[in-house]
Nucleic acid binder design. Structure first.
Lengths: 247, 247
DNA sequence: CGTCCCCTTGAATGAAGTCAATACGCGTGG
DNA sequence: CCACGCGTATTGACTTCATTCAAGGGGACG
């Protein structure tokens, strides 16, 4: 299995063999498994670990006192949770597994060692966390401005592109383990309306979603409907000036 | 005039006189003025500067192709835009002045000097940018889950607290230069509905908003309605272990 | 075989948007 | 000084998008 973190960071700059070895080291620290729906980080707790997702999907979310729940982002293989989180005394949101999950729990030491010794990787990790903020901004736009139809289309575009980056899309399709309730909590819609909107998307010939598999039938059309501009993912090798001279 | 950045960072850890001097140095770099509504940073451009807001309000926003505009955050005195932004090749959102604005344009060198020489300030700046992300997450929750009434209440709570932190609230009141259109674009509501919701908030005895001045008539009630939990602002001196031994 | 979770459907309701008209300063220039 | 235009706020009438409530279907699993 190739390391999805490497795949992602290569979107920023070409890494050297040594860089890759360092990142593979991260992926083999304390590896833990979690059951679907397990809470991994709970709002209010002190940050204990830094997590690198190896396989499976998770989500960040916040829950209001009265139970309403907003999913803030989906966390996919190769995603690193909250660089620098140890500065804060308590978490302001929670993280839960969606599918069975394997994560590598990193110590702050491991990260500090990298940031002091490996400039290119450090830059790439900064890039990754800036992209994380940009994604959060785009989600604000998504729930604030787009209609249900556009909103779901946008979410599909984003997830498909992010999965493709880490090699988890095959052609037009990818695993898609979210329930309609998950989709509802991510888009700020009701589950019933998500169901109806999905039917519209299918009827429009844009997607096929069945058996936890998503097929993007017409990516261009989907992007147009969603007004999906991938610039916020910053995938155009922005750190190429740092490229390693690979053999 | 005291430096609002100092006021904010003191929420994280007590700074030494030397620290404060360094930060005052930032506030006196190239100082520029901008007219209300002027665009300061435009989506698509390369990041040119790092901005420290000295006086006035600005906002980050994204605009969809068809003109719909979502305000992503309000930028208040003492706010520092996008540490590390130079890693990215182009901006994925824009920044515009709301009121007359004075900003200090910082060079990347100035920041690098600080991060290499002043550990406590560096930590405080990380804290600040983590808080920035947390605010963005809370905005996603706000537009995704809260009703119009709750949503506006929440926005008032957040802005009032953030202004209080930098010394810009007097008692129960603060300057509030936003138009109803601004409020609409920040909350994902229509301007007409913002108008009606404001009337409800006034009728409920929660706020007085007139002549660009906001008076919070009943902060506790407003917080309850908004389900405002200030934990995401991380104001409880989380870096106190770094406190300077002040004279 | 029952239970639980997830998906689907219909009907009624409601929150928020749209459209359009009006009002209120405020500054500018005739 | 007054007229005009402009941006902002307000109001009413109507529409629509999305929610809620309720019921039923299907598959997985003990």
């Amino acid at each position: 299995m190739s390391n999805p973190l490497v795949a992602k960071l290569e979107q920023f700059a070409k890494l050297s063999a040594a860089d890759r070895r360092v990142l593979d080291g991260l992926a083999t620290q304390r590896v833990r498994r979690h059951e679907p729906r397990a809470e991994i980080v709970r709002e209010g707790e002190a940050p204990r670990n830094l997590y690198l997702i190896l396989t499976g999907w998770a989500c960040r979310y916040k829950q209001l006192e009265d139970g309403r729940r907003q999913i803030l982002n989906f966390i996919l293989p190769g995603d690193l949770c909250d660089l620098n989180i140890f500065i804060l005394r308590q978490m302001d949101h929670s993280i839960a597994a969606i599918t069975p999950l394997t994560v590598s729990e990193l110590s702050s030491d491991a990260i500090e060692k990298i940031t002091s010794d490996h400039g290119r990787i450090t830059q790439a990790l900064w890039w990754d966390s800036l992209v994380g903020v940009a994604i959060q901004r785009e989600w604000t736009v998504n729930v604030g401005q787009r209609s249900a139809f556009e909103r779901m289309a946008h979410l599909f575009c984003e997830l498909f592109v992010r999965l493709a980056v880490v090699g988890l899309a095959k052609g037009q399709s990818c695993d898609f383990p979210l329930t309609q309730t998950d989709l509802a909590q991510a888009t700020g819609l009701s589950a019933v309306h998500v169901n109806r909107t999905l039917q519209e998307l299918r009827a429009a010939g844009l997607i096929v979603l069945r058996d936890k598999t998503l097929v993007i039938a017409d990516l261009e059309a989907l992007k147009n409907i969603a007004m999906f501009n991938p610039n916020y993912l910053h995938l155009d090798r922005e750190g190429r000036h740092l490229d390693a001279n690979t053999p």
